[in-house]
Design a protein around this nucleic acid. Structure first.
Length: 410
RNA sequence: GCCAGGGUGGGGUAGUUGGUCAUCCUAGAGGAUUGUGGAUCCUCCGACCCGGGUUCGAAUCUCGGCCCUGGCCCCA
């Protein structure tokens, strides 16, 4: 038997309804903040993704050649594509641009809990605003969105300049190595690296920086950074807005991509793959041939949010099963249409079953049965049966529709 | 790429000193029951992950692969 490709998943209707419900909550928050949805191709030129990250990431991508010999890749993330799109299509749009997306990405990695080869990201990009207010808005939006899903999480906010300031005297390659150690909280490796450079003094201050949760203390350790005022304003806005976060200056977020403020969200009940959100300020546009534009954004790991939320009780929506005899069948079609026009999920028998069997099936799949036989056809009414309580009565179709609608939210 | 555990009908399972038609529950279809459902009974449907090896004979032993679950690595 054919199997689905490794690391992919099938979603049955129950699960899709749960996913759509959460997606809808994220969408709704983004909409209320003014972020409008964009969509980019599932595959792009390979170069779009290797440009800023090097050839190494090809190992983790789905790369292929099309019939015209073009080297393409399934998108491993969306931000690069959105910025490419901005340069191609929207360079002259009034700033700032508030965009969001919900899309699947592909990475060739070993699957495990919360990590799949096809996975969905809900992200936002705020393009063209280079201010503390912009930085604060993305964090507030991230917080709002995660709150809307109901997931339990921890939000960490930091700034790359603190760490950069401390290691600015090191060779670029060494800076990168130190930041990699810090990102992984690998203090043994950090100490070894700094010892080999005769800079054990840095080990002390870097460790202190990573451990502090206090802004004033961070400035003491790292010295004044150029973006001091902006970051203080950003933090001030978060406090004023009542955002629940903690400061963390150990966030390195994958090296060269981000330029300043960075933030990450972690779910509490996941395993090794517990990061559910990542973002910050960045500059990418110039890499793709555009003018240099400051941007800020984040992406939510949608699948991890779903794993963290666990089983979701689906919203109760009334379902109507039309039960009819052969005499009532023609009229049943019209009644079914009336129910559907009223927005009610309505299903008819397709198996040519008898009345009893139709009712038995309706009892498993619906909340109400609408019985239409010869008697109802002659009287112009329908018999509505509440399948949970077994109560039934014969009324006009309009009254039956009203009763179903009163059952619960559609 | 590495490590550990696992893979028997759609779901859940029993079954090895190797030996009849592979067990049971559930789900699904039909019937007992042609205008009233979830009970009961009956019938049907449907599986040993794939391939090689050992053997008269493999779900069982063995090797390789694939896939699943979790951990490592990585995570733009």
């Amino acid at each position: 038997m054919l199997q689905k490709p490794r690391g992919t998943r099938d979603f049955l209707p129950d699960e899709m309804e749960a996913r759509r419900a959460v997606e809808g909550k994220l969408r709704d928050v983004a909409r209320r903040w003014g972020y409008r949805e964009v969509c980019t191709p599932v595959f792009e030129d390979l170069e779009l993704f290797t440009m800023r990250s090097g050839e190494g990431i090809i190992e983790e991508m789905y790369v292929f050649e099309d019939k015209g010999g073009r080297k393409l890749a399934l998108r491993p993330e969306i931000t690069a594509a959105v910025i490419r799109m901005y340069i191609n299509e929207a360079k002259v749009a009034p700033k700032p641009l508030r965009w969001c997306y919900f899309a699947d990405c592909f990475r060739y990695e070993r699957p495990q809990k919360g990590r799949y080869r096809q996975f969905w990201q809900f992200g936002v990009e705020l393009i063209g605003a280079d201010t503390a207010a912009a930085d604060a808005e993305t964090i507030m939006l991230a917080s709002d969105m995660l709150n809307a899903t109901g997931v339990t999480y921890e939000l960490k906010v930091g700034h790359l300049s603190f760490m950069k300031n401390l290691v600015k005297d090191l060779e670029p390659a060494m800076q990168r190595r130190v930041r990699a150690h810090l990102d992984k909280k690998d203090f043994d490796g950090l100490n070894a690296t700094l010892e080999s450079l005769n800079r054990t003094d840095l080990a002390v201050s870097l460790t202190a920086l990573v451990n502090t949760r206090d802004l004033a203390e961070a400035f003491e350790i790292a010295g004044t950074i150029q973006e001091k005022v902006r970051f203080e304003q950003t933090i001030g806005s978060l406090d004023a807005a009542g955002v629940n976060y903690s400061l963390n200056f150990g966030i390195a977020r994958g090296l060269d991509y981000y330029t300043g403020m960075v933030f990450e969200g972690f779910a509490q009940n996941l395993g090794a793959e517990n990061q559910i959100l990542g973002g910050g300020t960045y500059r990418l546009a110039h890499l793709f041939g555009g003018d240099d534009v400051a941007s800020c954004g984040f992406a939510i790991g949608f699948d991890r949010v779903m794993v963290s939320l666990g089983d979701i009780t689906p919203a109760i929506v009334p379902v109507v099963g039309i039960v009819c005899t052969s005499e009532g069948r023609t009229r049943a079609l019209l009644v079914a249409k009336a129910f559907r026009d009223a927005g009610i999920r309505t299903e008819m028998d397709l198996m040519e079953r008898g009345l009893g069997a139709q009712l038995a099936h309706a009892a498993k799949t619906a909340n109400f049965a609408i019985v239409i036989g010869q008697r109802e056809t002659e009287s112009g009414q329908v018999t509505i049966k509440n399948l949970a309580t077994a109560e039934q009565k014969t009324v006009d179709p309009a009254a039956a529709i009203a009763e179903v609608r009163a059952f619960g939210p559609r």
